[in-house]
């Protein structure tokens, strides 16, 4: 009986998966492999095979290393921060609070703003002659150049948080709402206090969502590149020169093989991280849906 079910499920699964898998392979996976191929060449057109030389060169390249470190540092700070804050917000907004809908929408607003607006406003606030400096001056502090100093990292983190907390909040909210109310009821009947409930039910059942949010936050931390690029150009302050800048510049100067090699190294690092999380998540998920 069990064996037959497994086999049948394979075919059914195939049918369900077909549209997505075919499209995905054609538009994502195959290009990914082609990119891989390019990273082993020395020129995108009529190149010759050079094996791992590109990777070797990259790892010894100072600029690449700096970009990698900056990216790592940025992500390591902003992603956990984002998740904590957005989870907190989601929990606060999960109960019935006065004007709840209004609040929920307002936190989502940053997502809605087009890049151009963000850039305009960023300029207005953070530039050398911007209003933040003006404010500081009137409080007696000396103005600084926000984008061209070691403060630039802080600015980018703030913008990232501002933009993405809403994003994660939506996901956490949906995840929270998916936890059936009866679990809580059953738990309180059993005599569990609020904190205990939070720990054993909420956190645990939120795990798939958390995993998801984590990955998405990482992806979004890359997206902040677009705004940073528009404000600070292709060569921003050394603290915020990240992998995306490096890759973008490589693309523009037609150094395609450096681009793909860099992307693959980055993918490798992320893959390892995701793999670990994946295993953890799978273990917990299996215990839920049994």
């Amino acid at each position: 009986m069990l064996k037959r079910r497994k086999f049948n499920e394979g075919i059914t699964a195939g049918l369900f998966l077909a549209p997505s898998a075919v499209g995905f392979a054609l538009f994502f996976f195959i290009p990914f492999l082609i990119g891989c191929y390019y990273s082993l060449m020395d020129s995108p057109v009529d190149g010759s095979f050079v094996g791992l030389r590109n990777y070797n060169d990259l790892l010894h390249n100072e600029v690449f290393r700096r970009a990698a470190w900056n990216t790592f540092r940025f992500t390591a700070i902003s992603v956990p921060l984002n998740m904590l804050l957005s989870l907190g917000l989601a929990m606060m907004l999960n109960r019935s609070v006065y004007l709840r809908s209004l609040f929920r929408i307002s936190f989502l607003f940053p997502l809605v703003i087009p890049v151009a607006s963000v850039v305009l406003i960023w300029q207005i606030v953070f530039e050398l002659n911007g209003s933040l400096n003006g404010l500081m001056q009137s409080w007696g502090m000396s103005p600084r150049d926000w984008m061209e100093s070691h403060n630039s990292l802080a600015v980018v983190i703030i913008v990232y948080l501002w933009k993405n907390i809403g994003y994660n909040m939506v996901l956490f909210l949906a995840g929270l709402q998916n936890i059936p109310v009866d679990y809580y009821e059953a738990a309180s009947i059993d005599g569990a206090g609020k904190f205990r409930q939070w720990r054993s039910i909420t956190l645990v059942y939120l795990t798939p969502t958390t995993f998801f949010v984590f990955i998405i936050s990482i992806i979004n931390s890359f997206k902040v590149f677009r705004e940073t690029y528009m404000i600070a150009g292709e060569y921003p302050h050394e603290d915020i020169y990240m992998m995306q800048h490096y890759m973008n510049n490589m693309f523009k100067s037609l150094d395609y093989q450096k681009l793909t090699s860099a992307a693959f190294l980055m993918a490798l690092a992320i893959t390892l991280l995701v793999f670990v999380l994946f295993l953890v998540e799978r273990r917990i998920t299996n215990s839920i849906s049994g």
Partner: peptide, 13 residues
């Protein structure tokens, strides 16, 4: 200093 930083980044990418 900042010009030096950026141009060197550009050259060494």
């Amino acid at each position: 200093k900042s010009i030096q930083n950026k141009v060197e980044t550009y050259l060494n990418e």
